[in-house]
Design a protein around this nucleic acid. Structure first.
Lengths: 196, 196
DNA sequence: CGCGGGTTTGATGATGCTCAAGCCCGGTGG
DNA sequence: CCACCGGGCTTGAGCATCATCAAACCCGCG
């Protein structure tokens, strides 16, 4: 019996690397379905991150607290996203980030060890992981580039265009944090945009 | 006969994964020493990036042109840095970035294919590549976090503290671009800082 | 009905940009 | 050897964007 979301999980892997049924079963066996309720933290800053996983249901925020004491959201993880703090996971050092459920969530979770097992037991999955990491890295660099060169309004419009679903399910002040501005500023930008 | 910088190259790899002499030779055989003179571009935006390499001498800038036509420097690559546009290298799509020598440079360069060969011929090197990519990814996320939460002056002071050598060898207006500000603003910040 | 978190709105302020001029200094040609 | 040129750095004045402080508003919930 497959856990709910296993099909989505498989598709997400096979977008980069195809797997046989047995190979997929080998991978899936290293993951466990876990549910989290709204506001629950999968880990918090100061904890060591010991998990790596895939969101099958719900929405989470990955954030840190800056040196002025402000929470800053790096990204929202919704269905189809992978989550982990690779730095903490591999180094065993405390994470600077917190991953918190914004809704009731379901994830397929693995540990560092089991995930490593899956990579060596199923070489195409190891391949997938390598590709995925490189893509995420490139995306991170690209986002850095965009963030620097765009105004708050441009960033908001781009979010509106690329991830309209996010805006439907996440409170404004979290969107503001994600965009790197204050809720008041986002409110003004929205008024501005609406008038056009 | 080893090319100049091969020892540095080996050390950089072995910081993450030890190699036997033969293994290192296998890897090195897939790289070629190339020299570039000041202002030369290893590739330019619009080109497909077909190289991956290691800087043994000199200093380069990795930059793109934003939607306002301004060049923005993502990083400086000096001795000990790896360079590539992984996105372009693997997808075969044109790069958005340009890599230009700021001084006469020497690099150990490989192609996508030869590099791939090295990874499979020498498993510890494949391991190294995986670790290195994960680290770069984490560093990129961290830099994004810092860039958002710090003022221009804080960013400048952090650069001054962490990479004072860069400031010695790179013109101010490039530093400004790296920090995401205009040369005029950097000039004012420097005056400000000096007065303290 | 009243509380409380989230959003909106207004007034003011800080940071960094734009436009513009001047300065410093190394390189070139007379 | 000196005058001139040009790029890069500095400085000044005014401006745009976003932050801050503060108050009002909205609305779901106890």
């Amino acid at each position: 019996m497959l856990p709910p979301g296993a099909d989505h999980f498989r598709k997400a892997i096979e977008e980069l690397t195809p797997l046989s049924d047995e190979q997929f079963a080998e991978v899936l066996a290293r993951f466990e379905l876990r549910r989290f309720s709204k506001k629950e933290c999968l880990w918090s800053s100061g904890d060591v991150c010991r998990m790596i996983g895939f969101v099958t249901k719900g929405c989470l925020r990955y954030f840190f607290t800056d040196n002025k004491g402000e929470e800053r959201i790096m990204y929202f993880a919704t269905e189809g996203w992978w989550i982990a703090d690779l730095n903490s996971l591999y180094s065993g050092k405390p994470s600077l980030y917190t991953l918190q459920a914004l809704e009731d969530c379901e994830l397929l979770l693995s540990t560092g060890e089991k995930f490593e097992e899956a990579c060596s037991a199923v070489p195409p999955f190891g391949e997938f992981y390598g590709k995925k990491t490189r893509r995420s890295y490139s995306a991170s660099v690209q986002r850095f580039a965009d963030m620097q060169s765009e105004s708050a309004e441009e960033k908001y419009l781009k979010l509106l265009k690329n991830y309209p679903q996010i805006l439907q399910r996440v409170p404004q002040h979290y969107i503001a944090s994600y965009l790197g501005i204050k809720p008041q500023s986002l409110s003004r930008i929205r008024k501005q945009v609406k008038g056009k």
